[in-house]
């Protein structure tokens, strides 16, 4: 029992802290300028990696699907597979993992450094609540930016996949395109966006928590940064499975 408590105490602390973040979002005035600045920063930092990931994933997916489908003469279904996979699974998950690496690490390192150099204590003596002032704008910025980045990544992935189809199928690519439009529903895209929103929230809250509770010294900052990335990524991969099941039940027409 004691062992069990020891294991779950850190999780409890995290949950209580998250609750404070939500209270702050609801009950305290948000500094819109800070939010826009953070969104700009997060967007700029991650757009190139997210776009490259989207493009190459779309292309390799198209190529591999074509190789397999060509044998069973289903070439015309290639793009539909690409688009549904990109929208519902690969777009949000890969964008999430890339953003966890770029933004999650940066958030944890920034807040962690502020903590070990006493800047967070200084903030508190200057009558500013660190959650209102530092965490909320960063958290909301990741939540808002992730779906935008994901949507762009999906679009680029599909476009790149279409490019591959042109190469393999030539003029028949337009059949594949028609099939894609026919079989990809709004619910697939919506699934991706809801996932992205959720992953953005997870990356934001985990990384900010790791930064704000960072241990002393350079070692503490390094560790907080690594843990922010690892925990965000694991959370994305595990929750993706459950989100797929739940969203499928909620969104797909029976």
């Amino acid at each position: 029992m004691e062992r069990l408590r020891e294991r779950f105490e850190p999780l409890g602390a995290f949950v209580l802290w998250s609750k404070e973040v939500f209270v702050s979002i609801v009950a305290h005035r948000l500094n819109v300028r800070d939010l826009l600045y953070q969104m700009y920063f997060i967007g700029v930092k991650s757009q190139s990696v997210v776009f490259i990931t989207g493009a190459f994933t779309g292309m390799v997916l198209a190529a591999q699907t074509y190789f397999q489908f060509h044998r069973v003469r289903m070439d015309h279904a290639t793009l539909a597979v690409v688009s549904i996979s990109m929208c519902a699974e690969l777009g949000p998950v890969l964008a999430g993992l890339m953003v966890a690496g770029r933004v999650g690490a940066a958030l944890a390192a920034e807040l962690g450094t502020m903590r070990v150099t006493e800047q967070i204590d200084a903030l508190r003596t200057l009558a500013a609540h660190p959650i209102d002032y530092l965490v909320v704008p960063r958290f909301l910025a990741t939540v808002i930016t992730m779906p935008l980045l994901t949507a762009a990544s999906i679009a680029i992935g599909i476009a790149a996949g279409y490019g591959m189809c042109r190469i393999y199928l030539g003029t028949f690519a337009s059949y594949a395109y028609d099939n894609m439009v026919k079989y990809t529903g709004a619910e697939d895209f919506l699934t991706g966006l809801i996932k992205a929103l959720f992953y953005g929230g997870m990356i934001g809250i985990i990384s900010c928590y790791k930064g704000m509770t960072c241990r002393e010294g350079a070692e503490g900052v390094g560790r907080a940064t690594t843990e922010a990335v690892v925990y965000s990524s694991i959370t994305i991969l595990i929750s993706n499975f459950f989100l797929t099941l739940v969203l499928n039940k909620l969104l797909q027409p029976a």
Partner: peptide, 15 residues
């Protein structure tokens, strides 16, 4: 805390 001002050992300026 509005009654207090504090100077930190490392100054803790916002960099």
């Amino acid at each position: 805390r509005r009654k207090f001002g504090m100077l930190f050992q490392s100054a803790a300026l916002f960099d």
